[in-house]
Design a binder for these strands. Structure first.
Lengths: 149, 149
DNA sequence: GTTGATTATCAGTGACGCTGACGATCAGCT
DNA sequence: AGCTGATCGTCAGCGTCACTGATAATCAAC
């Protein structure tokens, strides 16, 4: 999609517009930098989450990533086919699939994190380090505030 | 979609996660506050843009809103059916449709802006006025920087 | 054990981005 | 004037994703 040039004042005052714009640009950067690794931004999200907390069920991963549980099935099918994630039956509760990163998954994740760092750097090119940190802090507080109610 | 509780550290350090989260929450607030007015967040975007610059073509509006031009057709069909926007043939270039807000469109827009203000207020509940302004400034600079290349 | 809830899965629907096509129109060139 | 290439709105078709609703398997509680 083409990039707009002269945002109109009323529209560009809207937070929705600003957030959507930043997110779309960032996703574009991710697509570009992750392409060589053969994974998508969504898939990186799954790998990151599994790296943080192993042995999560599909629903837990889906909820935290804000991905629909039914979409998660296909997402994991892809990751499993690539050999990055394994589904294992949970011994304690056999309804659940326990998800874990494979060795390859860990390797790809390490590289993907660097790619993601680079993508973020491009988005934040206009800001210095302090400002980037401020933006991160503000967004984090937004998220934290809203999950505690 | 349910709201995640305990974001994992690696994942929630990612800007994509933070931005997506903020945007989804904000869109949820908008859907709620705009419902009584019978318009969607996308439609509000169109009204805002037309209020800023009347006599825009469909493609101009689509590009600035980052909506696909073919989706714009249906979006305008809806707004025209509700009597908020009018399509008029451009005298100078008869390929174009000149778009303008109707009187009703202006009335609804005024109310919708208040609804949107309220939606933003809910998203930003955790931040004080200074911090909200900072966030807006940082996001605006991001957008401006990226359109100038 | 029977009932009710939860998990992963699948089919179907709707919204949206995107491609490719079309007719209508415009602009530039000869 | 006529030709050619580009642009605008529109439409059909495809792929992705959120969402609903159904299913079988399993768990938990009584």
């Amino acid at each position: 999609m083409a990039t707009p040039r002269n945002p109109s004042p009323r529209l560009s005052a809207r937070l929705t517009y600003l957030l959507k714009r930043a997110l779309l640009d960032l996703e574009e950067q991710h697509a570009e930098h992750l392409a060589p690794l053969g994974i998508s931004g969504r898939e990186l999200g799954v790998l990151l989450l599994l790296d943080d907390e192993d042995a999560a069920s599909q629903q837990q991963v889906a909820t935290r990533l804000r991905v629909d549980r039914t979409t998660m099935v296909g997402l994991l099918d892809g990751l499993e086919a690539k050999g990055l994630v394994a589904r294992r039956a949970d011994a304690a509760d056999r309804r659940r699939n326990v998800l874990e990163l494979t060795g390859d998954g860990r390797t790809v994740l390490a590289r993907a994190i660097h790619a993601s760092d680079e993508a973020e750097r491009q988005l934040l090119a206009e800001l210095d380090d302090d400002e980037s940190a401020q933006l991160r802090t503000l967004l984090t507080r937004l998220a934290r505030g809203r999950s505690e109610r």
